[in-house]
Design a binder for these strands. Structure first.
Lengths: 181, 181
DNA sequence: ACCTGAACACCGTTCAAGT
DNA sequence: ACCTGAACACCGTTCAAGT
């Protein structure tokens, strides 16, 4: 049924994490499931659709992990922690999120979640979309640079948690200024 | 001589901008120069090296455009404008900058330029690397999202200049707070 | 010194066929 | 309803050969 589609996307993510995105091919995914390459086409329109499906799955997992309780500062920290945990769990597949346009349903749900937190903080509605794009760019981009090596060696054996926490504290201060406290 | 290497990278960038990164193949680049695919290998080690060379060329152009005069705020704005102009001139090739690890010489030169501006602003040396990564992530990531469609339709016929200027003003305020004025 | 052509092991995808 | 296999037009890259 449609959990065959889920299996296909799951295996594609496993391949990406183990051997890199370049290793994700219709043939390789089929092989993992004991199927001919052609057997996966009924469940996934094309290779591009498969890659979009992988992004969709990753963001879906992310949204499952992001809790909704607490003050807006803690909610923002929780979303950030969830993104960075996702990147560390899927170092191979994660960069697809930034690489593909991704005007998908789950992308919008993440944007809505961040917008919702900003609204709860008291950010004027006119400023919310701008700050949402600022925060999501910083958040997704930082994890991407970390995972694909753009940052190089790293401060302490590749632990960027402390640095990003400081970045996020700065951005929180910035938001506090905008809402005037 | 070695301007054959430059021609090869130039043509690869043209192909990427006109038909997307996926259209960049050794065969396609060769064809543009009237050469067999194999004739380009002496000048470019591999396809991966070609892609890295494209990033190197793009960042090189960027650094040529980024002026060094004025106050640190204006220098930061100039670098930002240069990055965004680069992305608009190379909408197809630009995403390679975020997609590839790129621990290349030109990447370091961009990092050094931003670090230099932060140092000139009076940011404590211990904070410079963190803020450099924050700014470069935001700057490169914003242009990437803009160019690959992650942001969707856009505020006014795809003009994100005003929005990014506001983001940058916010970050400048943040830096001013850190240096204590 | 510089380039070509054939060949190999891969791709995504179409189509006709099998159960 | 679901899957396979052959085929097509592509890849990156190796190697031996041509001028």
């Amino acid at each position: 049924m449609d959990d065959k589609q889920r299996q296909i996307i799951d295996q594609a993510i496993v391949i990406a994490d183990e051997h890199g995105i370049a290793a994700v091919s219709m043939r390789a995914v089929g092989q993992r499931l004991g199927l001919s390459p052609m057997a996966i086409y009924p469940y996934v329109r094309s290779k591009d659709a498969l890659l979009d499906g992988m992004v969709e799955r990753l963001l879906g997992d992310l949204l499952t992990m992001a809790p909704g309780a607490g003050g807006w500062q803690d909610r923002l920290r929780a979303v950030s922690a969830a993104v960075r945990a996702l990147a560390r769990r899927h170092p191979g597949a994660y960069p697809l999120i930034m690489a593909r346009p991704g005007a998908t349903a789950e992308t919008r749900r993440l944007d809505d979640l961040i917008s919702d937190i900003l609204g709860a903080a008291g950010v004027p509605a006119a400023e919310v979309p701008r700050l949402e794009r600022l925060l999501s760019t910083l958040l997704l981009g930082f994890a991407n640079s970390e995972v694909n090596g753009r940052f190089g060696a790293g401060p302490a054996a590749g632990d960027w948690d402390a640095e990003f926490a400081a970045d996020l504290d700065d951005e929180i201060r910035l938001i506090e200024q905008i809402i005037g406290r």
